[in-house]
Design a protein around this nucleic acid. Structure first.
Length: 531
RNA sequence: GCCCGGGUAGCUCAGACGGCAGAGCAGCUCACUCGUAAUGAGCAGGUCAGGAGUUCGAUUCUCCUCUCGGGCUCCA
């Protein structure tokens, strides 16, 4: 048998015509009697009034002499049209009609373009995307790994990745503190009762790690979410309306038993840390709170270097949902109003909300145009009710607060992966584990190189030095591969004049004889500029 | 979880009818002291993912498990 793509090229060359016909369902059942999946489609087409053909008829396309298939069409006139520039990419199983309860068929994926040039460009883009894959860069830049001994979907961060992560978290904490959040902490495990009250065990038990059974019969679970813990903090004493809104923030580690086939690098893991916060406010406060929250989220994402956004609003799902229509309308309108204020494209996801509340999510496009779902802001009508949350209002009556879930990063791990891919590993100065590396030309210049390094460190920068035990060219090459923002070469001239040779990442030519103070000011500017 | 394909040194990979395990890079040692992308020599480095089976003998063949990749389904 010839390879599939070779046979495809033959068929293209043959310019087989596509002959359209419409036949009645009975006839179709005969023609396709050996094809059980096609018979299923014929049944649906002959009974579905919305089918592409008039009732009772199904459309076929035939390539004489011996191939006929069902298709709504339209088709090009013959097989020689348009398809000369394709490449088969992969094979995969796909569930019949997208239903995991149904059998799987083999699907062959390919890509086709109007010209070889466009095909090559497409393949080139795929290669470029592969180069910035965070899983590959994670190894190359020594950022993190997934030791087999620990378990699937459970990452360890190495010193450089750990440092980047710390810088991400530090900045996030600073900004949250400035925005009126309070920092809370909660344990990683809890008795089953908590997740029964929250409802997680009812609808999400499959997604949780199995329970730990204690001798006295108590069952404990690893937490899949932080919200019940924050709710208990809110409920720990009687709250006054004067205290609202209450904003509780935590880098909370959660564990979810993701199905083995869905685990993917740092973007889909079984153990992760959410930059999670829950806002408890009055109904009246909600619109203002959502607006300032969305501003805060976008502002912060921009500081991390993401600048191209659109928003998606997910509304009430059909069927059962908790909360009254009035509550849904209020919250949805508040989210919509906040979104419209942002002057960004707003995409509606009608009926896409969770059953417990509407949500807005921020989609960000990265450096090569891929979109990532980033932050989510979600109203929740369910948990305040399940936990019986209350506060005392100005009227001296008890009221139920509104609860807003929100995460900017989603998870620190996932956001880390997005940043690695967005920057292709070339982190901006404020996030770079090493901001400047000093390279003495020969051993004679090492004392000066040490002084330059110490100077940078004294000014609060992350600088290191590699001594002249190997060639300068080799050391420069290694520093470039590490994607450091700056490489400083110091030789005799520099020792004499108090200067450095500056190699900025991305520029071909070094700048010679730059005074150290000038470089320090430049680096300081880069760090302040953030993303 | 399902379909398909992988797992050989830290990394990238070669290898074999079933018969002592290979390279480059990285690492270490020594020499070289060099002004912008790989200085040279030497040394060390392996339960061939793990377990079971077949066999005189398995890294190689078979089965199971773990794990990775591409998809499907899922992502509160």
């Amino acid at each position: 048998l010839p390879p599939i793509d070779a046979r495809m090229r033959e068929i293209i060359k043959e310019q087989q015509p596509f002959i359209r016909d419409e036949i009645d369902a009975d006839r179709a059942r005969v023609v396709f009697e050996d094809h059980k999946y096609k018979l299923e489609i014929i049944e649906d087409a002959s009974t579905d009034p919305m089918s592409a053909t008039e009732a009772g008829l199904v459309r076929t396309y035939e390539n004489p002499p011996n191939f006929i298939d069902l298709c709504r069409g339209p088709h090009v006139e013959h097989t020689g049209r348009h398809l000369g520039h394709f490449k088969l990419m992969r094979v995969a199983g796909a569930y019949w009609r997208g239903d995991e309860k149904k059998p799987q068929l083999q699907r062959i994926y390919g890509t086709a373009w109007a010209s070889n040039k466009e095909l090559d460009e497409h393949l080139h883009r795929l290669e470029e995307a592969a180069k910035r894959d965070h899983r590959k860069l994670g190894v190359e830049l020594d950022l993190f790994s997934f030791p087999e001994e620990i378990g699937s979907g459970l990452a360890v961060f190495h010193p450089k990745g750990g440092l980047i992560r710390k810088l991400m978290e530090d900045y996030s904490r600073d900004r949250h503190a400035a925005a009126g959040y309070e920092f809370v902490n909660s344990p990683h495990i809890s008795k089953a009762d908590l997740f029964e009250t929250s409802g997680h065990l009812d609808w999400f038990a499959d997604g949780m790690f199995p329970p730990m059974e204690l001798d006295e019969g108590q069952r404990y679970y690893l937490k899949p979410m932080n919200c019940p813990f924050h709710i208990l903090i809110f409920r720990s004493r009687l709250r006054s309306y004067r205290e609202l809104p209450q904003r509780f923030f935590e880098f909370g580690s959660v564990y979810r038993y993701e199905k083995s086939g869905v685990i993917h690098g740092l973007t889909r893991v079984r153990g992760m840390t959410q930059d999670d916060a829950h806002i408890f406010c009055s109904k009246e406060q909600m619109p203002g709170e959502l607006r300032s929250l969305l501003t805060f989220v976008l502002d912060l994402l921009r500081d991390y270097g993401l600048t191209d956004f659109y928003l998606e609003l997910s509304t009430k799902p059909a069927g059962k949902a908790v909360g009254t229509d009035e509550e849904w309308d209020e919250a949805t309108e508040a989210l919509r109003a906040a979104a419209l204020d942002m002057d960004l494209e707003l995409v509606m996801d009608e009926g896409g909300g969770a059953f417990y509340g509407p949500k807005i999510s921020v989609q960000a496009r990265d450096a090569i145009g891929r979109t990532w779902q980033m932050s989510t802001i979600q109203a929740d009508f369910q948990e305040p009710q399940r936990f019986g949350l209350e506060y005392i209002g100005a009227d001296n009556e008890r009221h139920r607060p509104v609860m807003i879930h929100r995460a900017l990063f989603g998870s620190v791990e996932r956001f880390f992966a997005v940043l690695v891919e967005h920057y292709a590993g070339a982190f901006p100065a404020w996030l770079a584990p090493v901001q400047a590396r000093v390279l003495p030309v020969t051993a004679d210049h090492e004392p000066y190189a040490v002084r330059v390094t110490e100077r940078l460190r004294a000014d609060g920068f992350r600088a290191d030095m590699v001594e002249a035990s190997e060639g300068l060219g080799s050391r420069i090459r290694k520093a470039k591969l590490e994607k450091l923002p700056y490489v400083l070469v110091v030789g005799g001239d520099d020792v004499d004049h108090g200067t450095v040779g500056v190699n900025a990442r991305g520029s071909e030519q070094p700048e010679r004889d730059v005074p150290v103070d000038t470089f320090v000011a430049r680096l300081a500017g880069d760090v302040t500029a953030k993303g």
